[in-house]
Every structure is written in C-alpha cells, then in structure tokens.
Design a protein around this nucleic acid. Structure first.
Length: 392
DNA sequence: AAGATTTGACCAAC
DNA sequence: GTTGGTCAAATCTT
C-alpha cells in the first residue's frame, strides 16, 4: 500500500507532473526510479544487517548512510532533473490545520538529512533556509511527549493536608542547565488533548496555570527516575495562538537506557493518525534535549532555535533512534503494537526472518507523496503507533 | 496492589 | 509580591 509503485495516482502527480510525461521527453522511466529506490532499500537492508557488527564504527555507518541517501536522492533527481522547482508540487496542498503540509517534501528530506550523512548528498537545489537548518549537527536523543493513560477526572480533594514545611525537600527552580524547546503538533486523531508521543516514558508530576497563557503547562519527568536516576524532564504547553501545537521543553538528559526508545512503528492503514508521531519523530531525528540545536516550527517552517551546548548521546542511542525511520519490518516484531504513548523497546534487527513488506519504500513513498488528502506524508514514514507507557 | 494522574501547597527565583 | 517548578496526598486506572 505504501509502495511507490502502488501509487500511480495523485501522489506522484503532485510531484510536478507524471513520470509518463517525463518518459516522453527522454527522462528516466518509472522503472528506473523504482530501481533506484530499490537500490536504496537494498543498501539500507545491508546496513541493518551490519549494524550489530559495526555499531561502534561511526565512520563506517556514516558512509553507509550516505550511500543510502545518494540512492534515494538520485531517485528524486530522476524525477526532478531540472532543479528546485521540480521538488515542489505544482499545486501544493493547503497546509494541514495541525501543522503539516506545505513544503512537506522538502521538510521530509530535510529531516532525514541528519541521518543521511554529509550535506553533499543533498540536492543542490535545496532551499536556503533548509540548508541553514541542516547546518547544525544532528544530536540524537529523544524528546518527547507522552504520558501514560488518558486524562483522569476526579473531584478536587479538599481534605488534603500538606506536610509540615520542615519535611519538604529543597526545591530548585529554573534550572539553568540544558534545555531544548520544540514545537510539536497535537495528535490529529483520538484525544487531541494529549501531547504527541516521543518514544520516552514520562510521568506527569505537575500542572500549572501559566500567567498569560490560556492553557496550563504540564510537567513531566522520566518514568525511570526512581530506577535509574534519570533526570530528564519536560514541560508541555499548548500554544495560545495555535491550539493545535504544543511547545515542549526538554530539560536534562535521559540516563535511563531502557527508555531511550525511538518511535518504532509499523505501517498502519490509518496513516493519518500519526501526524504528531511523525513530527515528534522528525524532531527526534534532528534534535534532542541534549542536542546542539532546537527546532521550532513556526507555521509550516522549521526554525532553528539557539543551540545548546551538549554532546550527542552515545552512538548506540543514535543508532537506535536512527533506525526509527527505517523500514519497520527491519526493526523487529516487538517494536510494533505497543501501547498508546511510549515505552516501546528497541529490537535491533535480526538479519534473518525479516519481513520486507514495508521498508524504505514507505520512506520513498512518503517522500514522494504529498497526499492530496491533506495528511502529512511523513505519516507514511512514521505511521501510527501505539505503545504502552506503563513499563515499570 | 501497583503505578499514574490530579491538584493544592510549598518554595525559590525574579 | 508574583510566578514558575516541584512535592506529595488523594484519587484514579489497570
């Protein structure tokens, strides 16, 4: 369903003209394009098989990623050999009310770049603002949002009594440490009051009405705080002027290895359900709470926020996160069907027994299909997933 | 029963 | 004094 070849209709047409037409002008054939995409997939598959043995060799992995990137970019060039204009659909779909749309193709490529290697792999016709966006290194890490369980309603307890002040622990405020803010769209389906999932497990520990803000701010800390001493926290606040967007501020690093969980998803028939996940994941791909830069999405454009000074996490984490865009089938069956917010465990791929039904074709499909239905094509890359937060 | 959420209170930074 | 971040008992969900 997500295979490019299975989408001869509107999606490809949105790419600036049918390939059939291009064929008539001596351009590459559709078979050529598909072959190129298959090549990218083949390379990606090889890489996945090699990861267990090469995960400690970033140089090698980077080069392999570049090779994969080149394959897909070549596919793009086959379809758009004439420059930047060809990268944009002739009639871009209207922006999605939840923040998607617009330059989705470019954004998708852009968001992938940190994984794809050096800048020389990208088409020269990339818009300048995207180029600037891509200049910063790509820290891996996670960010996110999600809390387990749905909203709970109860009567305020008036009988509660506070403990003596002497028993209160010292509380710090306004930590000056690392922090990163990003804008994340709300979930398009289901309970849109829930902030999007980011793959980590969070526990809400507070909510506060913020002066001048219509919506309260929620405070989360890592679920694994007690077990691993993980000090990662985040604040989630809905924007006044854009109720469909959350401002998520991450503070601290995740030190809980078990929760460095990328969004691992299986393709879902309901691809539109993954808008927030897609964005959250996309943000993960380019940022991290410990990263060097933060992306703030303003409208449809991603805007780079001032960098923060933190090293990228361990390579193992990077790999885990890095493969989140990879064919879900390569990531192992355990990655699918998790609960509703986060906590999926990474299952690094076993070289055998893979189901290659959805792989990079999904990626290519999403890259090349803007979707006239209005949904972000990133959905196809990061389909809806539901995993249970409660992991402890 | 265990774990997560809600929510008023506390407290430090402005 | 105000505000934002955190605590922790009560409550809810699984």
């Amino acid at each position: 369903m997500h295979v490019l070849a299975a989408h001869p209709g509107p999606p490809l047409a949105l790419l600036g003209g049918s390939l059939d037409h291009r064929d008539k002008v001596l351009g590459p054939t559709m078979d050529d394009v598909l072959s190129q995409i298959h090549e990218g997939f083949r390379l990606a598959t090889e890489l996945m098989a090699e990861i267990p043995a090469t995960q400690n060799d970033p140089a090698y992995l980077a080069e392999r990623c570049r090779g994969i990137a080149r394959a897909y970019i070549d596919a793009v060039r086959m379809m758009y050999p004439h420059g930047a204009d060809d990268l944009s659909p002739p009639a871009p779909p209207p922006p999605h009310p939840f923040g998607g749309g617009g330059d989705s193709h470019l954004q998708q490529l852009d968001l992938l770049r940190p994984f794809l290697g050096g800048g020389d792999s990208l088409p020269a016709q990339f818009p300048q603002h995207l180029g600037r966006l891509l200049e910063s290194p790509s820290p891996f890490g996670a960010a996110g949002t999600s809390s387990s369980g749905g909203p709970v309603r109860r009567q305020a307890s008036s009988s509660r009594s506070s403990p003596p002040v002497q028993q209160r622990q010292h509380r710090r405020r306004r930590e000056s440490g690392e922090r990163m803010t990003m804008m994340v769209p709300v979930q398009r389906t289901g309970n849109t009051d829930l902030p999007p999932d980011d793959g980590y497990t969070w526990r809400k520990y507070g909510q506060k009405d913020i002066l001048g803000s219509r919506y309260p701010r929620s405070y989360y800390r890592c679920t694994h705080k007690n077990y691993y001493g993980c000090e990662a926290k985040k604040k989630v606040q809905r924007l006044d002027d854009d109720p469909f967007m959350y401002e998520v501020t991450y503070c601290g690093n995740h030190t809980c290895l078990t929760s460095t969980t990328p969004l691992l998803t299986l393709p879902s028939p309901n691809t539109a359900a993954a808008a927030s996940t897609a964005t959250a994941t996309a943000n993960m791909l380019t940022n991290s709470p410990t990263g060097s830069a933060a992306i703030l999405a303003s409208g449809q454009d991603l805007v780079m926020a001032p960098a923060v000074e933190h090293p990228a996490p361990a390579l193992s984490t990077a790999i885990q996160l890095g493969i989140s865009w990879m064919p879900s089938a390569l990531i192992g069956p355990g990655a699918a069907g998790e609960g509703s917010s986060s906590g999926a465990q990474v299952n690094l791929p076993a070289a055998s027994g893979r189901d290659t039904e959805y792989p990079v074709m999904d990626l290519a499909d999403a890259m090349f299909n803007s979707g006239s239905s209005g949904g972000s094509s990133m959905d196809a890359i990061f389909p809806a997933h539901h995993h249970d937060q409660r992991d402890s």
